[in-house]
Simulated assay, not measured.
Amino acid sequence: MRAHRPGWEEPHVPRQVDYEERRRRIGEAVVALIARAGMEAVSLRDVAAEADVSMGAVQRCFRTKEEMLLFALQDISAQVTERADERIAADEAPRAAGTLLAHTLAEMALVDAESAARARVWLAFVAHAPTSERLSAVLHETYARLHELIAWLIGYGQRTGEIAGDVDADREARELVALADGLTVRAVAGHGEPEEALAMLRERVERLLVGGCGPQ
């Protein structure tokens, strides 16, 4: 038994708090609030209540509301790009470029029921970006990575002979990312069914393939 002088209190050792885990919880709370009630719902009090932490804990993790939003956007952006990458890496065996393109674009479009909350949050950040250079920069970087990924897949199709060599991969990638983005807007607005959106993506990809209608 450890001895100590009479009248002295044992030194209090604070419980170690996983700082990154708390930041993650707060980020998830921000995303949940935006998905339910929009960007206006993100306040210090409401985020703390949603994350089940004190307002002081939120302030220790994030100095400003913009920092909270930035962290949440970076997490959403990572999810979008990681899900697209996972589609490509799902099988060890080589897969057809057209299949990879269609599946990757489907992940980017966020049109299924599982992706509905992320789609609402993504568009809320897009709408808010003009008021924040830092948020705008994250969105710009995310779109650049998605464009690079789609252009690489088109190049892969050209190397395997599935897509004609004279196709402009950069231009086609821009158009495909824009199509996926537009379908996200349609899904959030409740216009059309997920199956219809996915069919539009497949048809657009098929026009790229040798033997298809060709790019337009």
Rank of each mutant, 00 (worst) to 15 (best):
G155P: 08
R83M: 03
E195D: 15
R23S: 10
Q79T: 15
P130W: 00
A106T: 13
Q74Y: 06
P14M: 08
E203M: 10
I34K: 00
A127I: 07
H128E: 13
Q59Y: 10
G182D: 03
A127Y: 07
G212C: 03
R202A: 05
E148H: 12
H4D: 10
I163T: 05
P94N: 01
L33H: 00
I163G: 06
A173I: 08
A3W: 13
V17Y: 09
L73S: 02
P11K: 13
A78C: 10
E107G: 09
T81V: 13
E114T: 14
W8D: 14
S54A: 11
D181Y: 13
G165Y: 06
A106E: 12
M39C: 08
A169P: 09
G211D: 01
V126R: 12
V167P: 00
A51N: 01
P130H: 07
W122M: 09
V177Q: 04
R63W: 07
H191Q: 14
V17S: 04
A89K: 12
I76N: 01
R186L: 15
A37V: 01
A119H: 06
G7F: 02
A102L: 05
L179Y: 06
L208R: 11
R118T: 15
E175Y: 13
S77Y: 07
V167K: 07
E9N: 14
A97R: 13
V17M: 09
L69R: 03
E193W: 12
E28T: 14
R120S: 09
